[in-house]
Amino acid sequence: MNSELLTARFVSLLGEAGVRENEPMSAHTTFKTGGPADLMLLPRTEEGLVSVLRVLREEGTPYVVIGRGSNLLVSDEGIRGAVVKLAQGMDDIDVREGRIIAQTGASLKALCLESIRAGLAGLEFAGGIPGALGGAVYMNAGAYGGEMKDHMTSVRVVDRALGIREIPAAEMDFSYRHSAAMEKGYIVLGAAFSLPAGDPQLSLDKMNEFNARRREKQPLAYPSAGSTFKRPKGNYAGTLIESCGLKGFSIGGAQVSEKHAGFIINTGSAFSRDIYELILHVKEVVLQETGVVLEPEVKMLGEF
C-alpha cells in the first residue's frame, strides 16, 4: 500500500487530528531535539491503539510507541515508519476506595496530586518526575527512595499478539529501571495502585520538599532527559563523571551539566548527534579512568 492510501486508512480510524505527517520529534521529546517522523499516530482509546497496531503490522510498517518523550533521544534524521504516541485521550485517573487506576498517558505529577487529594500516600516521590505513567511503569522509574512498583497491584498491557491483558504486578519482574515489559514486548496501557491512607497536607509537604531538592540540585532550566545514566552498583553516575573532570564539558550544544554531572543538557542549540557523541565520550572517559561501565537510561530512536 502506498503512503497516501496508508495515511488515509489511519485517518479513517483516528480522524484527521489523530494523524500527522513529517512530524518533528523535537516537539515530542524533553531534549527538544530530533528529526521528523514519517507518520505520527495519536490514538485516544485502547481500541483505537489496537486497530492502529493491527494495520501497521498488516502493512509491514515499522513503528515505535512513545509516551511524553521524557526519556528519549531521537536521531536528527528522524524516524522512518510510524510513531504511535499515547498521551491525550489516554490519560484518565480514577480514584476509588484506596485504589488508583490510571491510564498510560497520565502525567506522574497529576497522578501524585490526585492521590494526595484523595488522602492517599506513597506516590509523593513521583510528583516531580517528568513524563507519563506508561514509560514510568515500563522502566520502573523512581526517585528519593520510591519506585513505581512499590504500591502497584496490576498493569494493563497490549501483548505481542495484540491482546489486552491485566497482569499482577508481582508477575512484572520489576527491578531497578526494569520490568517484564522490556523483554515481552508489552505496551503499557495503565496500572492500578493500592495506597495507604495519609494526611494530605503532610503528603503535599513531602512532594514539595522533594521538588525543592530537585530544583536545588538538578538543571531543570534546560532541556534534558533527566538522569542520563543508570546508577552503577555501589556508586553514582554523577559522582563518577564529576570525578573525571567532565562537569561542564560540551560537544556542540550538548553539555554535561555544571549543576549536576549526571545530567546531559541541551544548552539551546544542541542536535541529537551532539548529545549522542557526548554520551559516548562520557562513557569512554569514565571507563578509562574508573573501570566502571556507565549504561545510558536514555532510549535511542532512529539511526545514529
Score class of each variant (00 low, 15 high):
Ala212Leu: 12
Gly142Asp: 10
Tyr176Phe: 08
Arg156Thr: 05
Arg99Phe: 15
Ala136Pro: 14
Gly128Arg: 01
Gln218Leu: 08
Ala212Pro: 04
Ser227Asp: 08
Gly127Leu: 01
Val188Ala: 07
Arg160Thr: 15
Ala170Phe: 00
Tyr222Val: 03
Glu171Tyr: 05
Lys109Ser: 11
Ser179Ile: 06
Leu123Gly: 07
Thr153Gln: 02
Arg165Ser: 07
Gly119Glu: 02
Ser175Trp: 03
Ala132Cys: 14
Arg160Ser: 13
Leu220Val: 14
Ser175Val: 01
Lys109His: 12
Asn140Cys: 07
Pro168Thr: 13
Gly105Cys: 00
Phe210Pro: 02
Pro219Ala: 12
Arg156Cys: 04
Arg165Gly: 00
Lys206His: 07
Cys112Glu: 03
Val188Asp: 03
Thr153Lys: 04
Leu220Asp: 05
Met152Gln: 09
Phe174Gly: 01
Phe193Ile: 12
Leu113Val: 14
Lys184Phe: 09
Ser203Met: 02
Asp205Ser: 14
Thr153Val: 15
Val158Lys: 02
Ile101Ala: 13
Leu123Asp: 12
Asp199Arg: 00
Arg177Thr: 03
Ile187Asn: 03
Ala118Leu: 01
Leu113His: 10
Leu195Ala: 12
Asn140Gln: 00
Leu189Lys: 04
Ser175Glu: 09
Glu216Leu: 15
Ser194Cys: 13
Ala118Val: 03
Ile100His: 10
Ala121Val: 05
Glu183Gly: 03
Lys206Phe: 01
Arg215Glu: 14
Ala191Arg: 13
Ala102Gln: 08
Lys109Glu: 06
Ile167Met: 06
Pro223Thr: 02
Gly127Ser: 07
Gln103Ala: 02
Gly105Trp: 12
Gly226His: 06
Ser194Trp: 11
Leu195Ser: 11
Leu195Ile: 14
Ser107Arg: 03
Phe125Met: 14
Gly142Gln: 12
Ala102Phe: 11
Glu147His: 09
Lys206Val: 00
His178Phe: 09
Ala180Trp: 09
Asp150Leu: 13
Pro130Asn: 02
Gly135Asn: 07
Ser227Trp: 05
Phe193Gln: 08
Gly131Thr: 04
Cys112Gly: 01
Glu147Asp: 14
Arg160Asp: 04
Asn211Trp: 00
Ile116Thr: 01
Ser203Arg: 04
Glu166His: 13
Ile101Asn: 09
Met148Ala: 01
Ile164Gly: 04
Ala170Ser: 15
Met207Gln: 07
Glu183Ser: 11
Met172Val: 02
Glu209His: 15
Pro223His: 05
Pro130Val: 07
Tyr186Gly: 03
Ser154Gly: 12
Pro200Val: 04
Arg177Trp: 06
Met207Lys: 10
Met172Asn: 05
Phe193Thr: 07
Val158Gln: 08
Met182Trp: 02
Ala221Asp: 15
Ile164Glu: 09
Ala225Phe: 07
Arg99Cys: 13
